[in-house]
Amino acid sequence: MTDPAPADAAAVALELERLRGTMEAGFARVDGALALLVQRSDQSDRQLADHETRLDSLERSRWPLPSLAVLIALLGVVIPLWQATAAH
């Protein structure tokens, strides 16, 4: 086997350098895209946590409504009965 000619070695070295530059640019693009995805994921997590907090507060403030409806219905029955017994 013979050593490759110096011109061929230089051409190979040049192509390897170009390939290295292309790979670095590709990795930089992928890293940027991944960083953007992570940022969006973090924003989505914060937004979801905010919605959960707001939903919990709405659920806590809503629970008396059915109780109030029952109380008003009972008063609607008791007051006429009381008035009817008081009139006699």
Rank of each mutant, 00 (worst) to 15 (best):
S41I: 00
L14S: 07
F27M: 00
L37D: 05
A10E: 10
A33W: 06
A33M: 04
L74W: 03
D8V: 08
R20W: 07
H51G: 02
G32T: 04
L68C: 12
L68F: 10
L75T: 14
A49E: 02
R18G: 09
P4Y: 13
A7Y: 06
A10R: 08
L71N: 07
L68A: 10
V78F: 08
V70W: 03
L74R: 00
P6A: 09
M23R: 08
I72A: 15
M23V: 11
T53L: 00
R18M: 02
R62Y: 03
E59P: 01
Q83L: 15
L48M: 02
M23Y: 11
R54M: 12
A69P: 02
I72D: 02
A35G: 13
A69G: 11
I72G: 02
A25T: 11
A73Y: 06
H88G: 11
D31P: 05
G76C: 03
I79T: 13
Q39A: 11
T2N: 05
L55G: 08
D45T: 00
P64K: 10
S67V: 15
E24N: 12
A73F: 15
R46L: 06
V77G: 03
A28M: 10
V77W: 13
V78I: 15
S61D: 13
A13N: 05
A86M: 12
R40I: 01
L75H: 09
D8G: 01
S41L: 02
G76Y: 04
G26K: 09
S57P: 00
S67K: 07
R18Q: 11
A86P: 13
D42R: 00
D8H: 03
E24M: 07
S44I: 07
G32E: 06
D31K: 07
D50Y: 02
Q47F: 02
Q47L: 06
A13R: 12
P6K: 01
M1N: 14
A49I: 04
W63I: 15
G76I: 10
G32V: 02
A87Q: 13
V30Y: 01
V78D: 05
D50P: 04
Q83I: 13
W82N: 15
A33Y: 01
E15Q: 03
V77C: 12
D8W: 08
G32P: 10
S61A: 08
R62A: 14
W63N: 13
T53C: 00
A86F: 15
A7E: 15
L75K: 14
A10W: 09
D8R: 07
W63R: 14
H51R: 08
L74P: 01
L16T: 13
S44L: 10
P6F: 06
D8K: 12
Q43H: 09
V77I: 15
T22D: 08
T22K: 12
E15G: 00
T22C: 07
D3C: 03
A13G: 03
V78G: 01
A33S: 09
E15I: 01
L65Y: 09
A87H: 12
V12P: 00
A49T: 07
A10N: 11
A13I: 14
Q83V: 05
R40E: 13
L14I: 05
R29W: 10
S41R: 10
D8T: 10
E52W: 02
A10Q: 15
R60Y: 14
R46A: 02
